[in-house]
Design a protein around this nucleic acid. Structure first.
Lengths: 170, 170
DNA sequence: CAACCTATGTCAGACTATTGACATGAGTCA
DNA sequence: TGACTCATGTCAATAGTCTGACATAGGTTG
């Protein structure tokens, strides 16, 4: 009774710890990407394009966990600076398939190395079993969080933008 | 060779998955806090104050994983709207100890219930052992990420703001 | 076929958070 | 005591993201 309705114990809350870990990861990535003149979303966009050439703006937004509006302004900058190319006319529908330029690919190589070092450091204290458990547990959390929250309440229309990650493309 | 320098496999990257989980958690929390007219940082601030009355602006910033500048403007709003109080003069040093008002406490109660429902949903697919493992693994990741990144390179001065969480206060 | 619904790309405005900078108080150490 | 270092609170400017809105393409359904 005393603990249950007195708030959320931040010391043992998995939600708080998840936010803390994500914050630490973000800070570490920003530290290594800043010298390259790159933000995290910037890097995410390039990495996504390397693995999925021809992705649409909306695809990239979902994969980088930002709105398609944010990704759109980023893509305009990246195109202006010669890191990506987009056709001026949509070959089909409204989708403008985006591709990396050689310059974008070179830029990504450095960033990937930097980000990999961060990920290696993050995993340095974990066994292989821990790593596997973390993947399984986090996937379960993502799946549960995305499950219909409106089992009894409303909040139905709020999952419009920024929904997916890149899992749905398999 | 083909996988090692071809990028980071987003499907199995723990870093990407961590970001995905944090994004899903953030979206879920925003969905339940929006009807209460509250942002996540807003809620975090209140929750921290409930557990640590008299915290300083900088303490709250670390606990909510934002800069003390961001927390400062938020505190000004919260004080103006009557959710918290701060003395006009620092009793000692420059620290202005902040406290919840009754109104702030009432507001927090609703938010806590909403956030707790999100956390319950997030944990719904996990066993107790999974929960314990997640806590241990995430703490290890946080600790490793905060460890000195400059074992061979520079990047030393970048960990100034937004460093801590609330772990250091024990 | 026509109406509907969903998804996409894009523009504009507002907001939140960040970086940078400054002055001040406290603790440390020679 | 005086110099140094560190942390805090705060102001200003910038950057990144979000919400809101609109037109359009494609698929679905009556």
């Amino acid at each position: 009774m005393s603990q249950d309705d007195a708030g959320i114990d931040l010391e043992t809350s998995l939600g708080y710890l998840l936010k803390e870990a994500a914050s630490a990861l973000r800070a570490a990535m920003e530290d290594v990407l800043r010298p390259l003149g790159m933000t995290i979303t910037h890097y995410s966009c390039l990495e996504l394009l390397a693995q999925r050439p021809g992705s649409s703006n909306s695809d990239l937004a979902r994969g980088a966990f930002v709105t398609r509006q944010s990704m759109n302004v980023l893509l305009q900058t990246l195109e202006r600076d010669g890191f990506v190319t987009r056709p001026s006319e949509a070959p089909v529908g409204k989708v403008l398939p985006t591709k990396l330029t050689p310059r974008g690919r070179r830029s990504l190589e450095q960033a990937t190395a930097a980000v990999r070092s961060v990920e290696v450091r993050m995993l340095s204290g974990l066994s292989d079993a821990d790593h596997a458990a973390a993947l399984r547990i986090l996937r379960s959390m993502v799946s549960s969080l995305r499950a219909d929250p409106a089992a009894d309440a409303d909040a139905g229309s709020a999952v419009a933008d920024r929904g997916g990650g890149l899992a749905s493309g398999v």
